[in-house]
Amino acid sequence: MTKSVDKELLRASFKLEYPYERSPGPVIGKFFEELSNEVLVGTKNSKGEIFVPAAEFDPKDSDHLSEFVEVKKEGVVQSYTWIEKPRAHHLIKESFAFALISMDGTNSAMLHMIANCKEDELEIGKRVKVVWNEEKTKTIRDIKYFEIIDE
């Protein structure tokens, strides 16, 4: 705690941090491992449905998923929200979008960001591709963001 700034109220600025070491486990760990190789993989259920990012369990019937398949690094915007003025924790400091992106051939969507475009270029159904972070951390941030595919 830093020193109080308001004597009557005793309001003190305070930072809460939890630098936990998170173990991703075999499925999410494999997904991150492959991201660091600039490869995108998903998990496949018995019906042939593919989940990217790799799901440990089938979101419908909870079946444990362990079969991995590589997918293309391109997908389609399912929904998006444009953030003209990024706020406190946002990773991108210029205007960007959060988006749900369904990678080609998959049956779920991935939450990530879209950058390097203008708001009016974005729409649901737009095709986007992965832009990799140069520095790899084996986390979801190894994808820096997505950008629109020029067609």
């Binding site: 998170r22 999410i28 990012p53 998006y80 946002h90 990773l91 959060f98 939450l111 979801i140």
Partner: peptide, 21 residues
Amino acid sequence: PYYMSPLWPDKTSLAALQAQL
């Protein structure tokens, strides 16, 4: 905590994804 929170999606933005759709 693996796929979402490291990207810091705020509550308003997640709701906005649904509203937009």
